[in-house]
Nucleic acid binder design. Structure first.
Lengths: 160, 160
DNA sequence: GTAGGTGCAAACCTTTTGCAGCATG
DNA sequence: CATGCTGCAAAAGGTTTGCACCTAC
């Protein structure tokens, strides 16, 4: 939704995100198949951080024939194409989020409710770059995850 | 080795790290068995970030009878007791490092040589706390991993 | 003596792969 | 019409578990 800001002022209506993804993939020589359309549509409709398996199940509600392998292969393609980003939750699990039209952000993971909160701090990024520069390391990406307990879980529903 | 700084000035020789671990476990009601001694000794002698399987193999050089299950179970215990910390490398792999006598630090992972560089920045920590405070999140731990290419791999041995 | 730890093997879970057939560009 | 994609089922890899036996406390 904040994607609109990235279009020239003249463009009144931004293209639907799905089209952007399609173009993204085609430009990189990937084919646009009905399965990929379904998987992308489903992933874009999902606002939380989903696992591969959750995505598979959601896709199968629309078409029970999608195979698990295709979902995994498509997630790999989408990750390469910069459409989704994988993130590790710290308990060995892998989750994904779509990044089209989203700014970079980091995550706080609540141990109690398992919800994931996004936050962003430019200064944080700058300090990382400075630290890297100090040892001549070239940053390509980074992953910052803060674990703890969210505000809601601190009052009342503390533990399980 | 920076562990020495944590002892009262009067203490000339710090206890061997192994003893510290033993005490750590006993205090928490865990038993100190010959297998645990071996696994701890092996883990402490390992200065890189090791996988569970590497640790198993190294232990078996001393005693081929150690079972994989015991290594995994012991790593869980050591993690709970704050003796080792697990870290995800980003490619789905899990590694461990021992934390006795080491200050907190973050990691830069070189994509080319796969070496892991440690660094520390107090301001980085402070900014994280500030960000958490802003949304009422209580931090318990965090994991910051920077991915990229290290200085050595940037000149010459770039890619693989 | 008893609770906790160990070894073995099997189970588990998530992800990847080989292959034959199909659909896209 | 060739290459890339899909579905299936099987393999792979890493981790956990059930169970009988053993040992630290």
């Amino acid at each position: 939704m904040p994607a609109a800001a990235q279009y020239p002022a003249a463009t009144v209506k931004p293209e639907p995100e799905q089209r952007i993804v399609e173009r993204h993939l085609r430009q990189r020589g990937f084919r646009w198949t009905s399965q990929r359309a379904l998987i992308v549509r489903t992933a874009l409709a999902t606002h939380d951080h989903f696992t591969a398996d959750q995505l598979l199940l959601r896709c199968r509600r629309s078409d029970p024939r999608v195979s698990r392998a295709t979902v995994y292969r498509t997630l790999t393609v989408l990750e390469q194409a910069g459409v989704v980003a994988g993130l590790e939750t710290g308990d060995g699990g892998r989750r994904f989020e779509h990044v089209i039209g989203h700014d970079h952000h980091d995550h706080m993971v609540c141990r109690v409710c398992e919800r994931i909160f996004e936050f962003c701090d430019q200064e944080l990024e700058r300090r990382q770059e400075a630290a890297a520069r100090r040892i001549g390391f070239r940053i390509e990406r980074h992953s910052l995850r803060i674990h703890g307990v969210c505000r809601a879980c601190q009052r009342g529903r503390q533990d399980g």
